[in-house]
Design a protein around this nucleic acid. Sequence first.
DNA 1: TACAGTTGAGCAAACGTTTGAGCAAACGAT
DNA 2: ATCGTTTGCTCAAACGTTTGCTCAACTGTA
Lengths: 337, 337
Amino acid sequence: MATLSDVALLAGVSISAVSRVLSDAPSARVGADTRARIRAAAVELDYRPNFAARALKFSRTNVIALVVPDLTNAIFTDMMRGVEEEAIERGYMVLLARAEGMRAGGDSIKRLIGEGRVDGVLVQVGDNVSAEDLAALLAGKVPAVIINSAQKGHIGSVALPDSAAAEIAVQHLAGLGHRRIAFLNGSPRNYTAVHRLAGFEASMKRAGLRVDPALLTTLGYQPRQGREGLRHVLEAPSPPSAIVVANVNAAIGALSEARALGIRVPEDLSIVAIHDSWTAENTWPPLTTVRMPLYELGRQAMAAISDRLSAGTVKDVIVSEPPVLIVRESTGAPRAR
Amino acid sequence: MATLSDVALLAGVSISAVSRVLSDAPSARVGADTRARIRAAAVELDYRPNFAARALKFSRTNVIALVVPDLTNAIFTDMMRGVEEEAIERGYMVLLARAEGMRAGGDSIKRLIGEGRVDGVLVQVGDNVSAEDLAALLAGKVPAVIINSAQKGHIGSVALPDSAAAEIAVQHLAGLGHRRIAFLNGSPRNYTAVHRLAGFEASMKRAGLRVDPALLTTLGYQPRQGREGLRHVLEAPSPPSAIVVANVNAAIGALSEARALGIRVPEDLSIVAIHDSWTAENTWPPLTTVRMPLYELGRQAMAAISDRLSAGTVKDVIVSEPPVLIVRESTGAPRAR
DNA sequence: TACAGTTGAGCAAACGTTTGAGCAAACGAT
DNA sequence: ATCGTTTGCTCAAACGTTTGCTCAACTGTA
């Protein structure tokens, strides 16, 4: 907890000399010996500039809030890593905030910004929030970047190659010979869900396959919703031989439900999920997935908010790194009929 | 971004009057009408006290850092909820920091404290860290509470009823008739692991069962280590009919490995894991687990650090809420021999 | 009327940092 | 010897709060 004045005292110089030397200010006209004495004193006292004082002086904290809807979401861990690593490189710290905690207090997010705790906000929009959140953010006039959505122009945003991911999944299944493919999707209010659906439909069409409305659900990304979705499409007049699940957590639910119903995977039903995670390789059978560039998503989001803060540029990015198919054992050729 | 002086200007009073009124200072001798005018002005401007200025003034930020080794750890989500809710009630904010990021920079943790960004630290000690971490913390002279360990006296700590959990698991299996029970544990450098082992051994003894050293592993809490552990105990001269896994993630790995090896669960092998999570109910078969009071762990940890900061009291707590057995379908009676 | 006590409100310092401006000494050039 | 320029360093204000102190005006009492 040594302050500038402690260092100055020890080095026998003024506070301003210390400040300039330690921050390598170009305006620092300080003799070589004095400089050395200051450096030595700073090291001896283990001086570190007080965060609050700097924040007050510059009215910026170099802290970015990352608001996520759900810590158990498959997307979270890798994205967080990307955000943090980019943050470190750019001299920022990341303050993680759960959206639940946000909603509860009601004004937690306004506090975060209003009190000047953070310079900007990264919001991962989940299945639930959309209208009020966007409104609150735009109203708040706070630098923000939306993750997993693209509100063109209003505010920065960073999104995944959602449609490409769905296309890769369909191509894989179609390539195996599947013709009746179901799609268990998230809420249509969700940017990712509409784009994944678009990709699904486009590649089904390209493969010459019919999209049966009875094989489409939009229940959500949770395991329970995956289970429900599976039961629903199995009750269709002509049930699927394969399903694409728009989220790996939901897929894990669906897979577990399939086993409970005595359906063999992949013999009776192939399953491919969007998003990869450690859980996907530890199901039985291990899940075939389409891995999304979540780490890159995180990095780009951080880069976007940082550019916004320093240069004022607002961009709407779609991460260019392509999704990659990871073939495990939950997909195979359909049974001959 | 309205400041006190903005409010003062609008209300036509001095800054200090505003400060006293808005913070309900007992020393505030302010007339009722002035008071009302100040309140109105504050609301109109949406005044919020600047965080940095307060932090500078009081040299405390009301922010606590929570350092966790791994975001995918089963313990994390529930514990975090507990920490946050207790934090809100006590007027603190939580700054989440991954231990990986900590280790990388090397001094990130010292920065966190040294720069005065946080008032205290909650450290969840994982499988890997122990010696250097404790040393660094004690040396740092920073208020800290260790989660999942108990360094009696030195520093505050909060731990789980680890041995009780292992006992419950063994009792369940012994009650089903199992006699050869394996234990897949974490590293013996780990507080939780040594206590779970103690509980395991105690209840085996109480049940009149022999602890076979060939059925004990100490590989770790990751899925991969669960797989390895399973293979190891299956190679024992006289393999187990049931296993207790000290962590649910490792148990999921073990379960998946069992399927891969063609072992039926629970017919050929019963599995019970310590810690519950959403993943445990979505395996096949769903995992029998012993749920730990993680939410309470989080609350108590936050309470401990808060008490430490305000009253200076150092406590070493073991969460009293008992673990509870959640019977699903991965455990059953052993096959008759 | 004078005076102590109370009420209402403002002044100014301090927290630790940064930074424009100022000042004295040394230096080089005429 | 004088004058501008550079070098080396310090002063002081400012960021937004909090809070001890001061001060004026008013109240009630002697």
